[in-house]
Design a protein around this nucleic acid. Sequence first.
DNA 1: GAACTTGCTGAATTG
DNA 2: CAGCAAGTTC
Length: 827
Amino acid sequence: MDLLSSLNPQQREAVTSGDGPLLILAGAGSGKTRVIAHRIAYLIAERGVWPRNILAVTFTNKAAEEMRSRVSKLIETLEIGSTPLISTFHSLGVRILRREIETMNAGYTRSFTIYDQDDTVRLTRNIIRDLGMDDKQLTPRSVQAAISAAKNRGQDAESFAAQAHFVDERRASIARVFQLYEERLHQNNALDFDDLLIKTVRLLRDVPEVRERYNDRFRYLLVDEYQDTNQLQFGLIRLLTEKQQNICVVGDPDQSIYRWRGADITNILKFEEHFASARVIRLEENYRSTQNILDLAHGVIKHNVERKEKALWTQNPAGEKIRYYQALDAESEARFVAGKVQEHLRPDPDLRAAVLYRTNSQSRVFEEAMRRAGLAYNIVGGFSFYERMEVRDIIAYLKLAMNPHDSIALQRVVNTPPRGIGKVTLDEIDNRARELGISHWDAISDLLAEGRNVSPRAAAALANFQRIINRLGRLAAQVTSAETDDDDDEQGSGPTDRDDAETDYESTSPVSDLVKAAILDTGYENALKSENNDEAEGRLENLQELVNAAVDYDEQGADGLRDFIDHSALVADTDQYKADVPVTLMTAHSAKGLEFPLVFLVGLEDGLFPHSRSLSDASDIEEERRLAYVAMTRAERFLYITHAVKRRVYGEELASEPSQFLNEMPLELIDDLSRGRSWLSFARGSKSLEEAAGSLRYEYDEDYSSGSDSDEFPRRPAANKYGGKTYNSVDSVQEFFRRRDERFGSGHATRDQYQKSRPESARRNPAPNTLPATPSIVPGSYVRHSKYGRGLVLRREGSGDQTKVTVSFPGYGAKKLIEKYAGLEKD
DNA sequence: GAACTTGCTGAATTG
DNA sequence: CAGCAAGTTC
């Protein structure tokens, strides 16, 4: 059979293996995706399984897309009435919940809103403020991260709180935020990303009737990247396969890189315990990479202690050696990469290259280098289209059109573009909503009806806002009232069931028209147009793009708008990156599952890769190592590894040590392309002494280091930054006078000493260039202020009525005051 | 109320 | 360095 002819014996076995649990341990490049795609096709073509009884789950939209296209290619010749469902975990959750959530009787309706990261952080910020907590110490971001982590561990607000009290105050505070956070989500009929899984699991667990139905529906379940599933996903899988046990999972423990997100590697390690009589098939022949690339990657991954040894093999040739380059800094690293890409493209214009880095912030220099080299590139991740401010604003309007009580959306756009609703008015709305326990939308009506506490101007602006939203709401109602059959569980119910009259009534492009309305009627477009600069121009283009994206949903009838909004939340990375672009820039995480003939693994420095936040924990380091392994095994033919000797972090130059992973690589596989001496040349020279010496010391080439002093740059991860004192602190006030004295020849500290120890503050706190003009209030003297109390005068500038003095008040910091009005008294 | 300025603090990886 | 919040100015 020709479905199987292209497969090796193990792959064939994996594809044809019958019912029951099946674990496929598939090493990097062993044809994992192929096997799943073929297995799906085989189930349909050879075993007569109905496509709609098959569910394949992936982690990313990208992977789902890839799988869909492979499967459809394999079965395109078949006459089939349905298609298998290939979906991400989160989309699956949405799909099930949109239909079934009301059966839980938990107060949610099927028109729930999805809060993405941006929304949840906003919500968290509001809560922290409402609770009167200090959002300096508890940053919304970190609190939100803690909540998400807890939810992923399967904790709810109560159990988190129960643990928290004993630990510390910070956790107790987070617990309170957590509690309120959950309440508000519920109030707003909103789910965050984690809830998409949590609620689905709860639903399937608590409502037997629904569980049964989905067990019958999805008789064959396939899961990709199984090593990255967490407890929730595992629960979901369990519940969905309860009845038929037709579960096929594919994964590779060496590529488990999402432990930080709650992924539990024991899911794959204990698969055989979880599912009785499971079959295990290993795929260890690699089709992707050269032997040298595999050997290098294996050289690194074998350093992991918590690992079962396995060695990939390949029939591919040894290939080129791995190429290494030590760069002076991030810019020269990027220049090197761009240059090499050009070199490779000259003889081979179709070659695809990937630049893989540890953190998104590294992408910028590479972007610039590519642009300068005239190379077309695309970036995966980072700021995606749907995360752009203007796009999110318009989406917020759409959300409001469907549900004006969505307070998060309302707060986002109530005064965007500016329409005269200021802070005072917003606070008033906010307070009212909180006191009465109503939505912001209702609070506005309330406020207007009462007419108190709001200026006529603000009232007019609010009424205007109401009109805008009501109008959009009516449009949206037209879209959604065109009732279509939204249940694809019914076979063969085609669009012919639709009422013709209704079709006439309904506009032909309902979703995109609504998007246009949200751009025009809200004044958004006009506001951008009047800005009249390049940036606004770009934003307008993005909005045009958003309208284009909406067109895809016009055909879907009633669900189109809802789906479009869901899509905007769930499609996080720009999935549709064009394959015909020569260079792709992305994080090592995003590269999982992809392959490229030419790969650059960059920034191999201690504290960067492995990341500094992983250095203290052995199993975190192991995860970093697996990540490096994933990155290296993306390469088919050429692999470059680079690092820089210094790098800007927080705008400060820091010296970087080579990554420990470099030391773990078999050096004989590596060619050194660095100019002059490098880490590699040193490592080679001292290889024989290595064991005796214990530690590696090396020197940079003259070219790279202007002085002999190797401490010219502070080193990561010591993060040798000026210790957080501002010039408001007592220290720097003293510093100030030391400097001043020094200027006048009476200083204790020499200039050299000073600059060496405080280069930053020297720049931030320039010496005054005027001498005190009047004798009473001069720098160094103390004054008294009616509100701030006693303070130390720091500087004095200007003359006459314009004289300004800067005074440092304990507890209030430095204030700049007009002497004439400030009413300062000499203390 | 909104535009502008300044100072301060802080980033890992993702759906 | 950059994004954001508070402060300042018009």
